[in-house]
Write a protein that binds this DNA or RNA. Structure first.
Lengths: 199, 199
DNA sequence: CCTCCTAAAACGAATGCTCGTTCTTTTATG
DNA sequence: CATAAAAGAACGAGCATTCGTTTTAGGAGG
């Protein structure tokens, strides 16, 4: 009687993901604002109307991309933290994560676009603030483990140490992305030299 | 006799700078691609034709902005390096430089836009690559001084150490820009804790 | 198992606007 | 007064989005 023609929910979320995947591909290639809706729609292989059924504006698509951009990294940080390795070895693994996110299939090139947008559009700014604060919290666990293992000076403020560790990840990633240098191994050795300075 | 109507050269470069200043203001407020030529022209208080006399396209204006974005920081790094302070004190001064560049009058918010563009547009990519490689070279001087003063382990590769130091600057700046935390003092203490780890 | 029916889902032509740029005209200068 | 500099109207292209139409999925009735 009610006439229920709805397609499966899996289908709906798959379509949504199809659109977001197309968006990521386009944004990677052309940037957030030089990508037109028509580019994105063509990349997705859908029609105008189909895309506008799932997202009511281009801004909403950009916001969805911004929401998802730290997903993969979060999980990987948790995984590294759960291994409770010495701080330095954890850092080595984290750099490996960043390295992998720096390539064309990684999230970093798109994250860079999102960061730029965050300074312009308060809605994106709020998303970025929330997500990267969350990422920081996950990294803090790793620093806590280091403190428990006696790897840090007594009484060190763990938030402050977390900030210092945190900054190395985008710092390294940006350097790779924009300049190419240094190799992960070289960077690690550089850090090591800095950390293990002569008395 | 020759029919020379040309205005003074100072006037020409002043007009050019006037346009670039307007561009920086607009880009800071709206981003590279959401800023229209008309926005920029209105901000400069000039006419369409006047702007197109000095720059033959919007891309050329963006390129000029990209060229200039490290100027202020370069000079400040040189200044810090020339003082030959202990590495850690130099770092503290560099963070101060970054802090100042992070505000709305600083270059960092626009630099972020430029970095994002660099991954999309090869022309901007080349400019960024060149300029930030140059910046790195200036920072290397500071690391060389640290090595001469015996602050680094013997045989440490100075390029590698430079990379590690370099990464902290955008790492700290980004964290300030996107998350707000940490304060410079807190960040410094965090670094210090990392540096002075128990054996 | 097939057919019909309904509403969701997909479509794509059309719309109104704004964009970057060009070009002709006007103004200012040495 | 000759010419560079500045002006601004005009233009076609391409933009994000709307909306009336067509297609399709899937439950109900036989």
């Amino acid at each position: 009687m009610w006439g229920v023609p709805r397609v499966s929910e899996d289908h709906l979320t798959a379509r949504r993901e199809q659109i977001l995947a197309a968006a990521r591909a386009c944004f990677l290639r052309k940037g957030l604002h030089t990508t037109s809706m028509q580019d994105l729609i063509k990349e997705a292989g859908l029609s105008v109307g189909a895309v506008y059924r799932y997202f009511k504006s281009k801004d909403e698509i950009i916001a969805a991309i911004a929401e998802g951009v730290v997903g993969g990294i979060s999980a990987q940080i948790d995984e590294v933290a759960s291994r409770r390795l010495p701080l330095f070895e954890s850092m080595a693994l984290l750099l490996e994560v960043i390295d992998q996110q720096t390539g064309p299939d990684g999230a970093l090139p798109i994250a860079l676009q999102v960061w730029a947008e965050a300074t312009i559009d308060p809605a994106i700014g709020a998303i970025v603030h929330e997500r990267y604060t969350g990422l920081r919290a996950r990294l803090r666990v790793l620093v806590e483990h280091a403190a428990e293992a006696g790897e840090l000076p007594a009484g060190a403020d763990l938030d402050e140490v977390t900030s210092a560790v945190y900054s190395m990840l985008p710092g390294y990633g940006l350097q790779r992305l924009l300049i190419g240098n240094p190799s992960r191994e070289g960077y690690l050795r550089g850090m090591q030299a800095l950390y293990n300075r002569p008395a």
